[in-house]
Design a protein around this nucleic acid. Structure first.
Lengths: 138, 138
DNA sequence: CCCACTATTGATAATGATTGTCGAAATCAG
DNA sequence: CTGATTTCGACAATCATTATCAATAGTGGG
């Protein structure tokens, strides 16, 4: 058990492509990002996209949420982003960032009241955005 | 396209067994409920458990949440239950019901502000319960 | 600049949860 | 009781994700 063989990440072509492709606005599945990359001419493999996204989530550069159907959706975080939540359209996926400062402390409070520690919270707000509603898809 | 051939659910042995087995306290996966049923002597099939749980979610008798790993977890609702949320232990799964009345209206408010309609929200609070923390599993 | 050492890639197989299929069995109405 | 239909259950199929593994390509040292 040597302390740590610090694994240094290599900057590869595909890693760069994925970072570039990632949008800070829309939540998309790994498969969806992969399709987009391929249609933009990249030859990156699906497994690589999954691996890169996981690494990015771990390093805090990417945000992920689990959709109702169980798919994991990814989106790039803004640099120096604070913890926040989203209001996502169930039809087209467009997401708006929202701030729920009250809830941050509320979560802590609830946890304390029940003796639960290391509280994490997920707030998922979904709805139908104006465009989709207008298009009768709502 | 006849208006509606109102499908009436039949009360079968397996449906009864599943309803009986369902606990109102713990969230468990369909597979987990199935295992429990089998170990209690039932011969119910896995697909049947999935079907029954879905039907029960649709009819509002069962509550479901999606875990971080993407599994769907089920729990029976108390009769005449209001909409509410849970604080669930990440280690042992024990869940406590919590009430967030402020949030109910907050969600509506946020939706209106962005023009989103048919707002649904999910609040998932997870932590480590006192027992698990004491056992050093937190 | 070139090389060896490894991390990384990508095609594909494997996994795990969930859903579809279909003949057989069971429920409910009359 | 009897027949029309639903529901069952075993198993195949699907879908997202992860593991495998030989081939490839960054990187640091010379």
């Amino acid at each position: 058990m040597s302390p740590d063989t610090a694994p240094r990440p290599r900057m590869t072509r595909q890693r760069r492509e994925i970072l570039d492709a990632l949008d800070t606005r829309d939540f998309r599945s790994a498969q969806s990002w992969h399709e987009r990359l391929r249609s933009d001419g990249s030859t990156v493999g699906l497994a690589t996209v999954y691996r890169a996204l996981q690494a990015l989530v771990d390093s805090g550069d990417v945000d992920s949420v689990v959709s109702e159907s169980g798919e994991t959706l990814y989106r790039r975080c803004e640099a120096g982003e604070e913890h926040h939540h989203h209001l996502r359209c169930r039809v087209c996926g467009k997401a708006v960032e929202i701030d729920v400062p009250e809830f941050e402390e509320f979560a802590r409070h609830i946890g304390d009241a029940h003796g639960y520690g290391d509280i994490r919270h997920t707030i998922e707000l979904t709805g139908v955005c104006p465009e989709c509603a207008a298009a009768g898809r709502g």
